[in-house]
Computed example of a mutant assay.
Amino acid sequence: MSRSIDYGNLMHRAMRGLIQEVLADVADNGLPGNHHFFITFDTTHEDARLADWLRDRYPREMTVVLQHWFDNLVVGDDGFGISLNFGDSPERLFIPYDSILTFVDPSVEFGLRFETQDQESEAEDAEASPPLRARRDEPETEAEADAAGDEDEAQDAEVVQLDKFRK
């Protein structure tokens, strides 16, 4: 019976813990400086809570912006609740950490991307990148993402053999 360490899930948990810690600090102290967040999440996640009209408008995923106006940010162990303004109409959302697809803070060019199991399977079939990438060059808008094109691909790491440093 062989057993292996599931580094992918461990990294996902650690990165979601990072998001939880950042949001808890913002809930306690507000957004510092020019920091702001673009958070894309899976609206089909069973624990995601949003108004029916928002779910109808965003049937698969939705990006919310935490910047100028948000209220009642409550950070929990499984996700966070927040009130956001949609056309002068405040709406309450609950976003589970497991539903987060991307977390970007463009003010410091920091971003995280999480891929689902289906995406991981497709990526393995296509010999694509690992399931989680911490990135500092996420585009701020869809237009910038489209313009980035192939520049968005992950770079391969160089493997260094320690034997060449031995005397």
Rank of each mutant, 00 (worst) to 15 (best):
S4T: 10
S4F: 13
I5H: 13
Y7K: 12
Y7T: 12
Y7F: 14
G8Y: 06
N9C: 04
L10D: 07
L10T: 10
R16W: 11
Q20P: 02
E21F: 09
E21V: 13
V22M: 05
V22F: 04
V22D: 13
L23C: 06
L23F: 09
D25L: 02
D25Y: 12
D28P: 00
G30Q: 11
G30L: 14
P32Q: 04
G33P: 07
H35K: 09
I39Y: 01
D42S: 05
D42K: 00
T44H: 12
H45A: 04
H45K: 02
R49K: 15
L54V: 14
L54I: 15
D56M: 03
D56G: 09
T63G: 10
V64H: 09
V65G: 05
L66F: 01
Q67N: 11
Q67G: 06
Q67D: 13
H68E: 14
H68P: 04
W69D: 11
F70W: 13
V74P: 08
V74Q: 06
V74R: 09
V75Q: 06
D78I: 06
D78Y: 08
G81K: 05
I82D: 02
S83T: 15
N85Y: 00
F86A: 14
E91G: 14
I95A: 07
I95T: 05
Y97D: 09
Y97G: 03
D98E: 15
S99R: 12
S99E: 10
I100H: 10
T102W: 07
F103Q: 07
V104R: 12
P106K: 00
P106L: 07
E109K: 06
E109G: 11
G111Q: 00
G111S: 00
L112Y: 13
R113F: 02
F114N: 00
F114C: 11
T116G: 01
S121P: 01
A123E: 07
D125V: 02
A128H: 04
P130T: 12
P131S: 05
L132A: 01
R133C: 09
R133A: 09
A134R: 13
R136E: 10
P139V: 01
T141M: 09
T141P: 13
E142T: 03
E142I: 02
A145C: 01
D146R: 10
A147L: 02
A147Q: 14
E153R: 12
A154N: 13
Q155F: 05
Q155T: 09
Q155A: 12
E158I: 11
V160S: 08
L162D: 14
L162H: 08
D163C: 06
F165Q: 06
R166Q: 13
R166L: 15
